Computed example of a mutant assay.
Amino acid sequence: MQVKERTFLITGAASGLGAATAERLAAAGAKVVLCDLNDGVTALAARLGEGAKACLVDITSAEQMQQAFDTAVALGGERGLSGVIHCAGVVSVAKLVDRDGNPADLVSYARTVNINLVGTFNVMRLAAAAMAKNSPDDSGERGVIINTASIAAFDGQVGQCAYSASKAGVVGMSLPAARELSRHAIRVMAIAPGVFETPMMSEIPEDAVQALAANVPFPKRLGKAEEFAQLAEQIIVNPMLNGEVIRLDGGIRMQ
């Protein structure tokens, strides 16, 4: 699939991985629909030009996300929506039993799973329905869905039960979704980033961030959002990438 003159919807596009992906695809000639709860997407869309549209939406809302997909399909014209890069999500840290002997908060756990997992399913189902209506392109494709998992899906640390479970669910959906959507010529992939320089990382204590960076075998640093965006573009243009989860982590394995 080509990027130029195609239309892509990106969630979590106000900052971090989503913003970097939107900027890279727009620079390659794509039209982009930027989705986020943060109104920073409005400024980013304005900076990217008339080929960019901003949608202030909650990824767990069926109605709001349907409106965003309608916007993307309209922006795409005859070609419709070619792809989705789903980056929106939250991080949460909570032990099952805290230092005072209290159990973890169930509402907080459910919120994390609802946003990271149910929200991903919501985006996937609407994306698939929109792209299934496309005419196949020259390579026979109708679309591509790229979800964001995490290495926490495989190497979850203490206190990451909610986050790890939600991202493991994203990993678990990748292959069955790819198998199902193959009849529509829609590919499904997931990227599992390691420790990256994103606003989400700012919620972790600085000493912990530095320790994580020091544990990356090579390059010995945090990942850059632009590197995530580069991989997303490679997935779009390489038709043999399907039904797989790619770790993008510099070789780190969490303890």
Rank of each mutant, 00 (worst) to 15 (best):
M1Q: 08
E5N: 13
T7L: 10
G12N: 12
A13M: 05
A14L: 02
A14V: 08
A19V: 05
A20Q: 01
R24E: 03
A27Y: 06
A28T: 04
G29S: 06
V32P: 08
V33S: 04
V33D: 02
C35K: 07
D36T: 03
D36L: 10
L37R: 15
N38F: 09
N38D: 12
D39K: 14
D39L: 08
G40N: 08
L44T: 06
A45Q: 05
A46W: 02
L48R: 01
E50S: 15
E50P: 11
A52P: 11
K53P: 00
L56R: 13
V57M: 04
T60Q: 11
S61Q: 07
S61Y: 10
S61T: 09
S61N: 08
E63C: 06
Q64R: 08
M65W: 07
Q67E: 14
Q67G: 15
A68E: 01
F69I: 10
A72D: 05
L75P: 01
G77S: 12
E78Y: 07
R79P: 01
I85A: 13
A88Y: 11
G89F: 07
V91R: 13
A94W: 04
A94N: 10
L96H: 02
D100A: 14
N102W: 10
N102M: 11
N102E: 12
A104V: 02
L106I: 14
V107K: 15
Y109D: 04
A110N: 15
T112E: 06
I115E: 03
I115T: 13
V118M: 13
F121R: 08
N122W: 05
R125Y: 07
L126I: 06
N134I: 05
S135V: 15
P136H: 07
D137T: 10
D137I: 11
D138K: 13
S139A: 15
G143N: 03
I146A: 00
I146N: 03
N147F: 00
S150G: 09
I151Y: 03
A152T: 13
A152V: 04
F154P: 04
V158N: 14
G159L: 08
C161I: 14
C161K: 07
A165I: 08
A165G: 15
A165R: 08
A168M: 00
A168H: 10
A168F: 04
V170I: 03
V170A: 03
L175T: 13
R179T: 12
L181K: 06
S182R: 14
R183F: 10
R183C: 04
H184P: 08
A185W: 07
A185Q: 11
I186L: 07
R187T: 05
A190M: 01
A192R: 02
A192V: 01
P193A: 12
T198W: 02
P199N: 11
P205C: 06
P205Q: 06
E206W: 03
D207M: 12
D207I: 05
Q210W: 03
Q210P: 03
A214M: 04
N215I: 02
V216M: 05
F218S: 12
K224N: 09
K224A: 13
A225F: 07
E227Q: 06
Q234E: 10
I235H: 06
N238P: 00
M240S: 15
E244P: 00
V245N: 09
R247C: 11
L248D: 01
D249W: 08
D249H: 10
G250T: 04
R253W: 03
Q255H: 14
